[in-house]
Simulated assay, not measured.
Amino acid sequence: MTVLSVNLNKIAVLRNSRGEDEPDIGRACDCVVAAGAGGVTVHPRPDQRHVRPDDVRALAARIARRVEFNIEGNAFAPARGSYPGLIALVREVRPEQVTLVPDGDAQITSDHGFDLDADTASLRPLIAELRALGARVSLFVDAGTTALGRAADIGADRVEIYTGPYAKAFAAGDVDEELERCVATAEAARTAGLGVNAGHDLNQANLGRLVDAIPFLAEVSIGHALIGEALYDGLAATVQNYLRILRSRSPAG
């Protein structure tokens, strides 16, 4: 079955809006793990707008290998204040997976994948260092990217397909073209020997169609929609709703 990794960034956004300790990101972590999620995702940024380095450390200790811990981030972003840099943080907490994303402070959220023509030379040593720390490495790529042999050549283990455009097309009722782009990238990744993850703007309405089209999808990382839906239905119930969708589809291979 495709693994559901729950992104807890939005819990930290709510907490930070008051400058205090609630809602408790650790308690949220315990809840999603108990509900059956196979992973927990965080995306610490140098500006510390949501998940902070101390959150990452505390969650790593709390998860304690019960499920996979996935840290997303920009390894090119330098240390700033109490943010030690992505690789330094990975060296401390040793997550199972690191998802490299080319984001910056000016982006509200991740909105594009790597340009593998331009970025392979600079990514190669970073990937080697992360793998030496015991992490599986996934690269965030745009749907429609098919020249993925170079991602395998520089040591990546997986790609994560950016599904924002797919989600927008699904909401507009004209999804076929964007879905085909996701499938083309997934097939190219599989041909290159890479695993396939997906994430961004996935929700209960659009997830099933994507997994039907890519039955070998290894993992989906879902945060914004899941936390929003949980406001109405509860966090544990919402995680279980997603798991029912994934269980009803073909198992990942």
Rank of each mutant, 00 (worst) to 15 (best):
M1L: 11
T2V: 13
V6C: 06
N9L: 00
K10C: 00
L14T: 01
N16T: 00
R18L: 11
D21G: 01
D21H: 08
P23T: 03
D24N: 14
I25Q: 01
R27I: 09
C29A: 15
C29P: 05
C31L: 14
A34E: 15
G36I: 07
G39W: 06
G39I: 02
G39Y: 04
T41S: 14
H43G: 02
P44D: 02
H50L: 03
V51S: 00
R52L: 07
D55H: 12
V56Y: 02
R57H: 08
A64Q: 12
A64C: 13
R66V: 13
V67S: 11
E68V: 06
N70F: 03
N70Y: 02
G73H: 07
G81D: 09
A88H: 11
V90L: 10
R91N: 14
R91W: 00
V93L: 12
R94Y: 01
E96N: 09
Q97W: 14
V98A: 10
T99F: 01
L100M: 09
L100H: 03
V101P: 04
V101C: 05
G104W: 08
D111Y: 04
L116S: 09
L116C: 11
L116V: 08
A118W: 00
S122H: 10
L123P: 07
R124M: 06
P125V: 10
P125S: 10
L126E: 10
L126K: 15
A128D: 14
A128N: 07
L130R: 04
R131Q: 15
R131G: 14
A132V: 05
L133V: 09
G134L: 10
A135M: 05
L139D: 07
L139M: 07
L139N: 05
F140S: 04
F140Y: 14
T145Q: 11
T145I: 04
A147H: 13
L148C: 08
R150K: 13
A152N: 02
D153Q: 13
I154M: 03
G155P: 11
A156R: 02
R158Y: 11
T163N: 09
G164S: 14
G164C: 10
P165V: 12
A169Q: 12
F170M: 11
F170C: 10
A172P: 08
A172E: 15
L179M: 13
E180W: 00
C182L: 06
V183H: 08
A186Y: 08
E187W: 00
E187N: 09
E187S: 12
A188Y: 05
A189C: 06
A189N: 05
A192R: 07
V196W: 07
N197K: 01
H200R: 09
D201A: 14
A205V: 12
A205R: 14
L207N: 11
R209L: 15
I214P: 03
P215W: 10
F216K: 02
I222R: 02
G223K: 03
G223P: 07
A225I: 04
G228D: 10
G228L: 03
G228N: 11
A230V: 07
A236Y: 06
A236C: 12
A237N: 13
A237W: 06
T238Q: 04
Q240V: 02
N241A: 15
L243Y: 06
L243V: 07
L243C: 11
I245F: 01
R247P: 00
R249Y: 03
G253V: 12
